[in-house]
């Protein structure tokens, strides 16, 4: 399954008031099953747009997008999404937020007790059993993001899509959640696509880093394979020459070849 997710010649044009705006062009990308892909680029380069395309939240203006051999025509439970701003429903408890997803995917086939068990398991996976019955406003930003991850994982998606999931968190919480995400994806063998603007995060987590050129009409500039053995340990990697080499390559791409547009 080398081409679990296939993106071919995708082009995305938005119709704005000033006329058509080409956000993405000539996007070609294949993602293998179990692979962890990071999409990195300056803000405004369309990396979130690309993720939304894979999620099915928007449809491409041109080109083909396939997931497990089927065309992506809209959002589906086989593709779990974690949003940047957690997007939990504030009137539901953490448990209910996750249960909503579980019920939708497995409600037809399974009993209530099984659905509840699945929800408990998903929350346990992100270490939030103690906060199940709290509302989103009662927990920290990191915990909210974990609930978002639990919600996405609870659907047992074939592909996990993360849109800058840790962007709004402080550095310590972010590091902690990165470690947990690595552990979880190792356990579940998930295929992951993650949008990020954090170079260290990209190198630490991913198997391949997809670097995007600046928009408008952004495209994939370069793909970097990260051949670091798993499980990865951030402290050990801090003194690893290869880690710094990869890091340097991404930084070089971002700050030398794709100078940040005056913003």
């Amino acid at each position: 399954m080398d081409k679990y997710v296939q993106v071919e010649n995708v082009r995305m044009v938005f119709n704005t008031r000033k006329g058509p705006f080409v956000a993405l062009r000539d996007i070609n990308m294949n993602i293998a099953q179990g692979e962890f892909i990071a999409l990195i680029g300056h803000s405004g380069c369309g990396k979130s747009t690309l993720l939304n395309l894979v999620a099915g939240l928007t449809l491409p203006s041109d080109g083909t997008m396939l997931c497990a051999g089927r065309e992506i025509a809209g959002p589906g439970p086989e593709r779990g999404v974690v949003f940047q701003n957690h997007s939990l429903l504030p009137w539901l408890t953490c448990f209910e937020n996750v249960y909503l997803a579980v019920e939708r995917v497995f409600g037809q086939a399974e009993s209530k007790a099984t659905l509840k068990k699945r929800t408990h398991e998903a929350l346990a996976l992100v270490g939030l059993t103690h906060a199940e019955h709290k509302h989103p406003h009662e927990i920290s930003g990191g915990m909210k993001q974990r609930v978002g991850i639990a919600r996405a994982l609870s659907m047992q998606p074939k592909v996990l899509l993360l849109d800058e999931p840790f962007g709004a968190l402080d550095a310590l919480t972010r590091a902690h959640l990165q470690d947990e995400l690595m552990k979880i994806t190792a356990e579940t063998h998930s295929t992951v696509v993650m949008v990020t603007h954090d170079v260290d995060e990209a190198v630490l987590l991913s198997d391949r880093i997809v670097m995007m050129t600046n928009g408008p009409a952004a495209t994939i500039g370069e793909v970097l394979r990260v051949d670091l053995p798993r499980p990865r340990d951030r402290l050990a990697l801090a003194n690893d020459a290869r880690y710094h080499e990869y890091r340097g390559a991404v930084l070089d791409f971002l700050y030398r070849r794709q100078m940040r547009p005056a913003a």
């Binding site: 999620a55 939240l57 959002p75 779990g80 949003f83 997007s87 429903l89 909503l100 997803a101 939708r104």
Partner: peptide
């Protein structure tokens, strides 16, 4: 978006 992604009725 949550409604769309979860495909809610």
């Amino acid at each position: 978006n949550v409604a769309k992604v979860l495909n809610l009725s």
